[in-house]
């Protein structure tokens, strides 16, 4: 249901942001292959369980997010030190947004569509998960429904990713002005795009910003939950996910 990226009056920057997005099918095949490799290893060593599989999937998704960022407009111009600071600050928001946007754009009611293309029934998750995880999934589902009602499209998600990534509040940025300028441009492009596609434009744009703050608090809770599971040794180690977790908690 998304309009063609180059439709009439499409803000140029929105088109640029959209072109940076990875191809969903390629991503799905790449991560599925990687997960299968992991599972063959597990057959020899004994299957560590669903939660570990989800962590490997999250780690692989995080790798694809870093790949998206480092090849993206504006971000690829930044020094590596600034790139690291920005990603350390917002990685969990981008990870949760990746999961949520997949449900809004491609998912079906009552099930969770994984990055590998597989589907898991939400009722199964609720029955297997503990209270904290079940609460996070429930809150995520509510955010999916809000964004679904708004009929968010790929263009808007592409803008939101840049809004999250280019956060001028991150400390000690060498190129603070560039980061601030990109965030302002991304906000302007999103405002222009939402006002072009919806009658009550300020309402939609403001509602999107409210959803962004809900996403921020949800990702902080998810990070804390993951860190607790890590401290009890339940998260596979020596990967990007663990490194990013430590980056914020060290």
């Amino acid at each position: 249901h998304s309009s063609s990226p180059q439709g009439p009056g499409m803000p140029r920057l929105v088109t640029e942001f959209l072109l940076c997005d990875p191809d969903e099918l390629q991503l799905q095949n790449k991560i599925s292959a990687r997960i299968q490799q992991e599972q063959t290893g597990w057959r020899r060593l004994g299957n560590p369980g669903t939660f570990s599989l989800m962590c490997v999937m999250a780690d692989q998704t995080l790798l694809s997010i870093v790949e998206w960022a480092r090849t993206s407009i504006f971000f690829k111009q930044l020094k590596v030190s600034d790139q690291m600071k920005l990603l350390h600050s917002c990685w969990s928001e981008l990870l949760i947004l990746d999961i949520i946007s997949r449900q809004v754009l491609y998912g079906r009611v009552g099930s969770l569509l994984l990055v590998t293309g597989q589907e898991v029934q939400l009722s199964d998750i609720a029955s297997q998960a503990g209270p904290t995880l079940a609460g996070l999934v429930q809150r995520g589902q509510e955010l999916v429904e809000r964004l679904h009602i708004l009929k968010l499209d790929r263009q808007e998600f592409a803008c939101i990713k840049f809004l999250i990534l280019f956060n001028p509040d991150v400390k000690d940025l060498e190129e603070h002005q560039l980061v601030e300028s990109v965030q302002e441009q991304a906000e302007g492009a999103l405002l222009e795009y939402t006002s072009r596609t919806s009658s009550q434009h300020l309402g939609r744009f403001t509602h999107l910003l409210l959803c962004l703050s809900e996403l921020r608090s949800l990702s902080t809770l998810a990070e804390d939950y993951l860190y607790c599971r890590h401290l009890s040794g339940e998260v596979p180690c020596n990967n990007l996910l663990i490194e990013m977790l430590h980056a914020k908690h060290s």
């Binding site: 790798l63 870093v66 790949e67 480092r70 090849t71 590596v80 790139q83 690291m84 990603l87 350390h88 990967n239 990007l240 490194e243 990013m244 980056a247």
Partner: peptide
């Protein structure tokens, strides 16, 4: 011995097509 660069840094510094 220099500190091992982080995985994130290695990813960001990797050649474009890797």
């Amino acid at each position: 011995e220099p500190e091992e660069p982080s995985l994130l840094k290695k990813l960001l510094l990797a050649p474009a097509n890797s």
